[in-house]
């Protein structure tokens, strides 16, 4: 049985369709990434999966339970953490843990064990009496995760969990997520950081409320099979881009930092051919064949589904 099964899930707000006939499955113990721009419908989907928002149509089963039928049963089986690290800042670390343990009904030995677990996981051992509001974002993020999984839920939803956190803390956080998944927890995580998607077993790309693509990072990169990408570095990138767009071999171009990425139509086209053409036009440029990055993939998917 899949941990999460979503079929034709739709949510409208008035005339606006926030989530449009979304269907996908998440396997048990998987880290499933939800990738999309802000406003693509990621949070709306999560809110429906957690039983906070009623779907307009379609179904979602979380842990085998239909969220529209029994949202309360779903809530006992899931953990949820949002980008706001919703902790009580005026309470101490320990008091926050005690509160969340209390509302999930933890008592006695299991409470003591989980409290120790959360403190260790967050790296806050010995700082139980510190006010949560005085902790830096990275600590609060890990404590927030600890509080969200005190009751050992088999499925965890993380909504933009790494916003506003320094790179070192982000790295540490993703290590915790991988540990969780290895221990059998299913993790559904939304992000708009493309580099974070690399941590996921599989990714669903959401664009304008629709599923634009789904698969592992390797699978997603297959959209560039037979469409090599040439990275062009030129002193005048705008001129180079204009010339590239006129070439029949070039499918499309896009700016990547200081360079230009040109997607070619046929697998045979070589970088030296492109640099030769540019040189003929009086534009000196260095051209190299590059492997598609996740950013190439994301832009390509979004462009196609937008069409």
């Amino acid at each position: 049985m899949n941990a999460i099964e979503v079929r034709e899930l739709t949510r409208r707000f008035g005339a606006f369709v926030a989530v449009d006939r979304l269907s996908f499955d998440v396997r048990p113990g998987e880290i499933f990434g939800f990738l999309g721009a802000n406003g693509a419908g990621k949070s709306t989907t999560i809110r429906m999966l957690c039983g906070l928002l009623r779907p307009t149509s379609g179904t979602a089963r979380v842990g085998g339970i239909d969220v529209a039928v029994d949202p309360e049963a779903v809530k006992q089986r899931i953990g949820y953490m949002s980008q706001r690290f919703s902790l009580y800042e005026k309470l101490t670390v320990d008091q926050n843990i005690a509160f969340f343990a209390g509302i999930y009904g933890l008592t006695g030995d299991s409470l003591a064990a989980r409290r120790t677990f959360a403190l260790e996981m967050a790296g806050l051992g010995g700082r139980e009496a510190v006010l949560t509001g005085s902790l830096s974002a990275g600590w609060r993020q890990r404590l927030s995760l600890g509080c969200a999984i005190l009751h050992e839920p088999p499925i965890v939803f993380l909504d933009e969990p790494t916003g506003g956190v320094d790179p070192l803390s982000r790295r540490r956080f993703w290590r915790l997520i991988r540990d969780l998944a290895r221990a059998g927890t299913t993790v559904l995580v939304t992000t708009h950081y493309l580099d974070e998607a690399e941590h996921c077993d599989r990714i669903a790309v959401i664009h304008a409320g629709r599923l634009a693509a789904i698969g592992s990072v390797g699978e997603l990169k297959q959209v560039f099979a037979g469409r090599p990408i040439i990275e062009v570095r030129a002193p005048q990138p705008v001129d180079a881009m204009r010339r590239l767009d006129q070439m029949p071999e070039v499918e499309k171009t896009s700016v990547f930092g200081t360079a230009v990425h040109a997607v070619l139509r046929s697998a045979e086209a070589r970088p030296d051919l492109v640099s030769g053409r540019l040189r003929d036009a009086g534009i000196p440029a260095s051209c190299t064949l590059v492997a598609p990055s996740l950013e190439d993939v994301f832009l390509d998917i979004v462009e196609r589904s937008g069409r």
């Binding site: 309360e72 809530k75 919703s86 969340f100 509302i103």
Partner: peptide, 14 residues
């Protein structure tokens, strides 16, 4: 405002 209410709503508390 702080988002803690949503966090509590996600838990099995009526």
């Amino acid at each position: 405002e702080a988002g803690t209410m949503e966090q509590v709503r996600m838990s099995p508390v009526g």
